[in-house]
Every structure is written in structure tokens, then in C-alpha cells.
């Protein structure tokens, strides 16, 4: 529409032609910018496709928790579409059984145990190692402490088996050698909380103590000099210089671990007790429960409900803990 007075700042409604032209220009701009960014876009694409298939689609596949899932021979979409909705039935099933309580309790309690043991022991070792006189020896210690961290849970379970095997294990031969009665370790649930806490902590200490060690070594040495001149003894120096310098890292690690309190290390709880049924009451955690539901009992509905329960609570915990970190120390927040 021709405008007789172009200087008047009135808002004219777009004609269809103008609208089309603008859209075309936008589209052109979009394609120009794509063309300009093509090489970098190509770099991103493999990773982005992976994320779509291994994250975004699975996230939506979580709707199976609200369905009575059946595998359909016609593929994924058909399986999802043809499985009937059942609402919250899977969740009702899950939470009406005793299992939900047991696995939640086990997961949270074990993780709380790991968090506190890890914190105390690895800070202790880090502080001690930062004060040892022989640097080369310290390196040797660190290298050996790191070994378990690099091994898989399958290997670790063989290690544990060498000590706990009912017939040949070292512990049983020591017990019977002293006139005691052999213990069937893999059928004795009362010992497993300690065994699992011990093995899990033992595997991770090397890694965690190196983290704290690096932090302790970056403390300005003049602080120690000043403390020494002020007459502080070794213990006072550790208490008033080293430990306060480690507090930010300790806070960060703990809060992040609390964010993950609903996730258990599947390998530890599945491999080390060798999935022994008589231990389930003390070794069953969310992850092993979901796995057993998926494969052994084939109850996809219930295990997907448990998986969604785990993911949602984990998400809430992560957001909350990150929120707290951001309040305490914005630099160490995850996002």
C-alpha cells in the first residue's frame, strides 16, 4: 500500500507481499549464517546427534513408566504407541512393595557413609602426604593408592573373592586355622554393609586424596612461615592454615556428592556381592533393583518407574545442591 506521507511514524499493517519478503529475507539470513558457520556446525553435529539418541530421545522414552510396555516388532514408535497407558499404576506397584523403601534406604545410607568416610580419610591422607619429608616416597604412595581406582569392578570383585571365598578364601582359612568355624560370606548379610563401605571407600581414596593433595600443595608457603614465626606447632599449622584452605574444595565435593546421593555405583553393588540373592536386603540399591527388574524378572513397567523416580529425585537434589553452592561460592557452582 503506497503511503502518501512517509514522514508520519504510523505503524502500517504488513501487506502479504511484505510479509513474504521479510520471511524470505529472514530465511535467507538464516541460511547465510548457517553457510558462514558450516565448518563449525559440522564439528558439532556428531556430538549433537549422539546427544539426541543417547539423551533426548531416552528422556522422552521415560513415558514407558506410565505404560504397560510391550516390545512391538514394528519398532520403537510402534512399541511406544501400542503400549496401553496405565497412569501411575507402575508407581503404585513400586511404592506398595517393601522393595521401594529398602532400596531407597540402602542407596541413601550407603552414599552418606561414602561421603563421610571419603571426606575424612582422603583429607587426612592428603594433609599427611603434603607434610611428609620425602617427596619421592610420597609419589610412590600416591601411585600405589591410585591403582584400585583404575581397575574395573569385575577385577575388584575377584580381589574380594580371593579373601571371602567360602572354600578357599584367605579369611576363612585364617578363621578355621585358629579353630573357628568357616563363614559363608556370600550368604551372611550382617557383614556386607561394612564390606561394601570398606571396598567402595578403598577404591576411591587414591583419587580423592590426590584432589585434596593438589589443593593443599597450592597453599602459599609464606602462610606456613608466618605461622611458624608466630610459634605455631605442626598441629596448629594444620588446623589453622591447611584445613581452612581445603574447606572450599571439601564443601564443593560434599555438596556435589549429596546431589548424587540417589545414584549408587552399580558395579560395586552388583559385582562385589556377586548378585547373591540372600544378600539383597543389604546390597540392593536403586540401580541394581532397576537392572534386575529389567533383565531377570522382565518387569519393564516397574523398573522404569523406579528409574524415573531415581532420575527425578536425583534432578531435584542436583538443582538444590547447585543452588546452595551458588549461594556459598558462585565460582565452584556447576552452572
Amino acid at each position: 500500500m503506497p503511503n502518501p506521507e512517509p514522514e508520519m511514524p504510523t505503524v502500517q499493517p504488513e501487506t502479504p507481499e511484505e510479509k513474504a519478503a521479510r520471511k524470505k529475507e529472514n530465511r535467507q539470513n538464516f541460511w547465510y549464517s548457517v553457510r558462514d558457520n558450516t565448518p563449525l556446525l559440522l564439528f558439532v553435529i556428531p556430538g549433537a546427534i549422539w546427544m539426541i539418541f543417547f539423551f533426548y530421545i531416552p528422556v522422552f522414552a521415560n513415558v514407558v513408566a506410565f505404560k504397560d510396555f510391550q516390545f512391538d516388532p514394528n519398532g520403537f514408535v510402534a512399541s511406544l504407541a501400542r503400549s496401553p497407558w496405565v497412569g501411575f499404576k507402575n508407581f503404585e506397584f513400586l511404592f506398595s512393595s517393601n522393595a521401594a523403601w529398602v532400596i531407597t534406604r540402602n542407596t541413601v545410607l550407603y552414599n552418606l557413609g561414602f561421603i563421610s568416610l571419603n571426606l575424612i580419610i582422603s583429607v587426612f591422607f592428603a594433609v599427611v602426604m603434603s607434610q611428609l619429608r620425602n617427596r619421592r616416597l610420597t609419589k610412590v604412595y600416591q601411585t600405589s593408592m591410585l591403582l584400585p581406582y583404575f581397575l574395573s569392578w569385575v577385577i575388584i570383585s575377584y580381589f574380594v573373592y580371593a579373601f571371602l571365598s567360602p572354600n578357599q578364601g584367605l579369611l576363612n582359612s585364617m578363621i578355621t586355622g585358629n579353630g573357628g568355624k568357616a563363614i559363608s560370606w556370600y550368604n551372611a548379610p550382617q557383614f556386607w554393609p561394612f564390606i561394601l563401605l570398606f571396598v567402595g571407600t578403598w577404591k576411591g581414596i587414591g583419587y580423592n586424596s590426590i584432589l585434596y593433595f593438589a589443593s593443599a600443595m597450592s597453599i602459599d608457603p609464606t602462610l606456613f612461615e608466618a605461622a611458624e614465626i608466630d610459634g605455631a606447632n605442626k598441629w596448629q599449622q594444620i588446623k589453622n592454615v591447611t584445613l581452612p584452605a581445603l574447606v572450599p574444595l571439601m564443601t564443593l565435593m560434599t555438596i556435589l556428592a549429596i546431589g548424587n546421593i540417589f545414584r549408587a555405583d552399580f558395579g560395586l553393588f552388583y559385582q562385589v556381592p556377586q548378585n547373591s540373592g540372600s544378600l539383597y536386603n543389604v546390597t540392593s540399591v536403586l540401580d541394581t533393583y532397576i537392572y534386575n527388574g529389567l533383565t531377570a524378572t522382565g518387569d519393564i513397567g516397574m523398573s522404569s518407574a523406579a528409574a524415573l523416580y531415581q532420575s527425578l529425585v536425583g534432578f531435584i537434589l542436583l538443582m538444590t545442591s547447585n543452588f546452595i553452592v551458588r549461594r556459598v561460592d558462585p565460582e565452584s557452582a556447576l552452572f
Binding site: F54, P58, V59, N62, V64, S304, A307, S311
Partner: peptide, 10 residues
């Protein structure tokens, strides 16, 4: 985390 079941189905 999408969870073990969803990943398995995909």
C-alpha cells in the same frame, strides 16, 4: 539421567 530402562529400550 535418562535412566537405564529408557536407554535400553532406545
Amino acid at each position: 539421567t535418562p535412566g537405564m530402562v529408557a536407554n535400553y529400550i532406545v
